[in-house]
Design a protein around this nucleic acid. Structure first.
Lengths: 228, 228
DNA sequence: CAGTGGTCTAGACCACCGA
DNA sequence: CGGTGGTCTAGACCACTGG
């Protein structure tokens, strides 16, 4: 009856490391030696290497032959280009969204925004806030039948996620983010597409705006120099 | 002096299979058993499995536990969503491109289009044609400093590539493609952004337009049913 | 039950880096 | 030269599928 699933230790190790990296528990630049991980998780090199390979392919880890394996540094250039893509795509998705959104779907948006507000007023959980944020964006992708595109984007922007986490965590950006969500909600109700497109651009570039000055100062260690 | 590089057989196996799949030499749906590959390339399961895992992550292969490994079928829904993304992104990139393109860069475009024409008039190589096509698009991403975005998109659209290959191969689409390129070239010279954005949309949806009726007929085996 | 993939161990040997 | 990753073999055992 029970359908086995996930007994592998690899999977557990992968998930552990991935979330530690995404949540910035393991800092960008930090070393992740194979032997060290073998010891920590009590397995041989095979599973450890397979995990590291997956993390590498996901852009979370940088394996330098004969030197070591390190959590990738954030790259400002990468991040801005991904934001550019999201602006392009979400402008178009939102345009399509307002023309087909039903009242029920609009209520769903309102509900998510409210949950975010409540979260902020009571206890605050970083990860939960981040998830609600994603859910909101997901609504318009889902409604316009662009689910797979949303997933493809998620896959492509792993590093933007870490940046966003840093933004939310370090820049106290929740109030501003919620405000922007509410503003966009109004525009959706009014079906004001031009305003909406400006707003989504402003919203997506929010992290850059907020952290800009601090990247060279406090968070310099987290970012690649030069940005070639 | 010589810097070793790529002695691994995995890498060779990976590249072989990948190009065979992308060039439709190995057909969508075809089986790729581990033992069969072990025999073909004369290696043990470890390298074979690592190759298959990479192909899976790239979306080229579908590993069904305890049943077998198969080249993924094309998915019409995936493809149209990726095209949607490209339309969104390239509309924006082209808008930025025309405002900063120098005469030298415009010449580069003309040069690529000419090469494509020459190729068509002399011998015809599918892969070469495809590459020139990519190069053209790459110019505007590169010029607008969106190289990384271009790479990210390439990674995300492996399956669209196979579709495009099918289009070029089966639909005799080269003349039309070249014509569209030339039309777009004119619009770039005239800096006619609205026309350009219509044109890129038309261009990117070209394959869908040309193959539409034939997907349920001749190429049904290559596509997923239902398209859920 | 035979076949196929899923997962892992143990160990070998190689290639490169840096002290 | 020691440490780290790169690559692979050989083989074991498990778990599910399908005839």
């Amino acid at each position: 009856m029970t359908t086995n699933l996930q007994n592998s230790s690899s999977e557990a190790i992968y998930r552990t490391l991935k979330s530690e990296i995404l949540d910035l528990v393991i800092k960008p630049g930090q070393s992740l030696g194979e032997n060290e991980l073998c010891a920590r998780f009590n397995v041989s090199r095979t599973p450890v290497r397979s995990v590291l390979a997956r993390l590498r392919d996901g852009g979370l880890v940088n394996i330098i032959p004969y030197k070591g394996t390190f959590v990738t540094l954030l790259n400002y250039d990468d991040i801005t280009q991904l934001i550019y893509m999201r602006v392009a795509v979400e402008s178009m998705v939102l345009r399509d969204f307002v023309s087909i959104a039903t009242p029920i779907i609009i209520e769903k948006l309102r509900y998510i925004i409210r949950k975010q507000k409540v979260l902020l007023e009571t206890e605050f959980e970083l990860q939960r806030f981040y998830d609600l944020d994603s859910q909101l964006h997901e609504v318009w992708f889902h409604t316009t039948k662009k689910d797979k595109l949303w997933k493809a984007i998620q896959r492509a922007q792993v590093n933007y996620s870490r940046f966003r986490m840093l933004d939310i965590m370090a820049a106290q950006s929740f109030p501003e983010i919620i405000q922007e969500h509410e503003a966009m909600f109004d525009m959706i109700e009014r079906k004001d597409i031009p305003a909406l497109q400006k707003a989504i651009e402003h919203h997506l570039y929010g992290g850059v705006r907020r952290l800009d000055g601090r990247i060279d100062a406090e968070f310099a260690d987290y970012f690649q120099k030069g940005d070639l």
